[in-house]
């Protein structure tokens, strides 16, 4: 672009908001919107934290440092730690294939990726029970009279290999419900960006991986981070699917949300809210990060326009 000294840039004429409503209508709509949100969003959020500290800060920390709470936190971190990186890799791979290439059945693939969003979490749990449960495919295989690979069936039986009502089932259910998050953020962005920059890098002699790490990744950085944040929040908070496959054995197969349910069912409300406050705090961090990422993204767009 020409330097400012040689070209006359008139400032963009800001539009006066001509088409606007009378003041009373504006006030009415704003108060309607804000009271709705206050009632449905702010009040519940504030309530979580007040309930958490209802019996004082001592009880709050006692609830959090309880060994059962700790084991729930550890299990949640384990499941999230496996699900998020896997879905991150999946998201990048799917977005690369869909955005950078043309092939038949692309729309079908897009629908399939979104599928876990439209399936009730309870059904998500159910399908893993059907595959790995005692009455499921795995159970049938292990108990079959003449299985295909007898040594494998024997070995699985001996190991007492369990997926359902055990940690692997929780991990799988968590992966299932969070499959689309990263891919969904990346695909529209990468489609909009096209493949010019990657092709330019290839012409200049970059290898495939170099092209990806030096050209593609910087371009999708914020969307990727955003997708990971959302994926993480959902993975930590998943309740329905995990609740089907976990068996809810305290100290063993309870994640944080299941532990909250257990405390609540025991009428230990303050304890339940204390642990819930952890997840509510996580939600606030998620929203904060999301806003920040959007801000960064907007700033990046702005510098691209003005430079």
């Amino acid at each position: 672009m020409t330097p400012a000294a040689t070209t006359f840039h008139p400032p963009r004429e800001p539009r006066r908001q001509l088409n606007t409503e009378p003041v009373w209508v504006r006030r009415l709509l704003i108060s309607l919107a804000l009271s709705f949100l206050a009632f449905f969003l702010f009040l519940p959020l504030a309530f979580v934290f007040t309930q958490a500290f209802a019996k004082g800060i001592g009880f709050y920390f006692k609830s959090l440092t309880d060994p059962l709470t700790w084991s729930a936190i550890k299990l949640t971190l384990l499941a999230t730690g496996i699900a998020v990186p896997l879905n991150c890799v999946f998201g990048v791979a799917a977005a690369w294939a869909i955005a950078k290439f043309d092939f038949r059945g692309k729309n079908l693939l897009l629908t399939l990726i979104d599928l876990p969003f439209s399936i009730s979490p309870v059904i998500a749990g159910l399908i893993y029970v059907l595959v790995f449960g005692a009455q499921g495919w795995l159970g049938l295989y292990v108990n079959a009279e003449h299985p295909w690979f007898p040594w494998l069936a024997h070995w699985l039986d001996e190991q007492n290999f369990k997926v359902i009502f055990a940690v692997p089932g929780i991990v799988l259910a968590t992966i299932f419900v969070t499959v689309p998050f990263v891919a969904r953020e990346l695909i529209p962005l990468m489609q909009a960006q096209g493949r010019n920059e990657e092709e330019a890098a290839r012409v200049l002699g970059a290898s495939g991986w170099q092209t990806f790490f030096r050209v593609t990744l910087p371009n999708i950085k914020w969307a990727l981070i955003y997708g990971v944040i959302l994926c993480n929040a959902r993975a930590m908070g998943e309740f329905g699917a995990v609740s089907v496959v976990s068996g809810k054995i305290r100290g063993q197969t309870n994640t944080i949300p299941l532990h909250i349910e257990a405390l609540y069912d025991d009428y230990n409300f303050t304890g339940a809210f204390a642990v819930a406050s952890l997840l509510a705090f996580l939600a606030l961090i998620t929203l904060g990060l999301k806003t920040w990422v959007e801000y960064q993204n907007a700033r990046q767009d702005e510098t691209e326009i003005s430079s």
């Binding site: 959020l45 959302l230 930590m236 908070g237 309740f239 819930a276 939600a283």
Partner: peptide, 11 residues
């Protein structure tokens, strides 16, 4: 979107 459903539920 961000608040786990169980937390929303008990709240």
């Amino acid at each position: 979107f961000a608040l786990p459903t169980a937390v929303a539920g008990i709240t």
